[in-house]
Amino acid sequence: MNPGPLSYFLVSAFGVGAVVSGWLVFRTDSMLRAAYWLMVSFVAVGAMLIVLDAQFLGLILILMMSGEMTIMAIFMILFMMNPAGLNPMTMVHQHRTSIIAGVGSFVVLAFVGVVAEFPDRPVPAGDATVALGEELLGRSMLVFESAGVALLAVMIGAIALAAKQGRFGDAYDGSQEPSIDVETEDRS
């Protein structure tokens, strides 16, 4: 199908939003804002997916990212010495190399994207979500199930890595808060 002017407008607006919020992730001092600017970037990409006829995937992306970015914000607040960014700070290394790499990859990819000719076979009208469901539980079931098994393995591995008592103990004990870890001088 031919995209109408509204699609053009929406894709451009959300595209600018996704890029600007992605840029602000590394420009803000507040860790909470960094995490939620990243979420705004994901929500903008999710909205672009919805405009591109992939409603289900766009909404699933937004749904997933809300939880993940809150976890990210909590980890930022846990691990950074100045999470609220009340004092300005920069925590960067190899800054010039990074800028060159970032700009370089943008220029190369954008050049390829603009110059190269891609086949023009647009999505036919119809329910893309139904097609996705049939693909997931039909031809590509093995891929889908492998993703599920990988996620299960990751859950077990992440808990074993992160939990203080490792893989041992009752679930209820694991949900109790640990004692406050204060380093005191040895007075003995």
Binding site: L32, Y36, M39, Q55, F56, L59, I60, I62, L63, S66, G67, M69, T70, A73, D127, T129
Partner: peptide
């Protein structure tokens, strides 16, 4: 709405973000 149930689920899970930034 086409995938209304997913829209609803996404909106309800973002409630967490609203409460978290309100507490922050």
């Amino acid at each position: 709405i086409h995938a209304g149930l997913v829209l609803f689920g996404a909106a309800m899970l973002i409630v967490l973000v609203a409460v978290f930034i309100f507490g922050w």
